[in-house]
């Protein structure tokens, strides 16, 4: 291993395959290493327990378990986790609720690469 090891593990949760790949390919933060992606809340909780990520991008509308409930579960599992909700802004009340349950920030779909990386940088903040 060289010296530039990714120090933070990242998980992508979205029911759209296209969006998952898009986020994985577009994120250019050196410190982040994508350790897995899930297409619904139940899968996400399972994967989270196995891979113990530090950063999660989370869609809100998903089958099985929606993003809001998933946010709550992940924060309960690991209070220090950083969660960026990545969703279409259909209803601000839902987005605010996700923040209330413990998500740290919101990125509106559709997004540009620059917006995604800017949001991730902001999310990592001092870390």
């Amino acid at each position: 291993m060289d010296g530039r090891v990714a120090t933070l593990k990242m998980m992508i949760v979205d029911d759209s395959n296209i969006i998952r790949r898009r986020i994985e390919r577009s994120q250019q933060i050196d410190r982040l290493e994508v350790v897995g992606s899930a297409s619904n809340g139940v899968e996400a909780v399972e994967l989270f327990k196995r891979t113990d990520p530090d950063v999660v991008t989370m869609d809100l509308t998903m089958p099985e378990m929606d993003g809001i409930e998933c946010v709550e579960r992940l924060v309960a599992l690991k209070p220090s986790v950083l969660i960026l909700v990545v969703s279409a802004l259909a209803d601000k009340a839902t987005a605010v609720e996700a923040i209330e349950r413990g998500a740290n920030g919101f990125l509106c779909k559709p997004f540009t690469d620059r917006q995604l990386n800017g949001a991730l940088e902001e999310l990592l903040g001092g870390r």
């Binding site: 740290n104 920030g105 902001e122």
Partner: peptide, 25 residues
């Protein structure tokens, strides 16, 4: 209702101020 929730989450250090501007109701 949403506005009050929004104002309250801003007091939480978890919330990243700049990442919630877009959802300000």
């Amino acid at each position: 209702d949403t506005a009050m929730k929004f104002a309250r989450v801003l007091w939480s250090e978890r919330t990243k101020e700049n990442l919630v501007k877009s959802i300000n109701p």
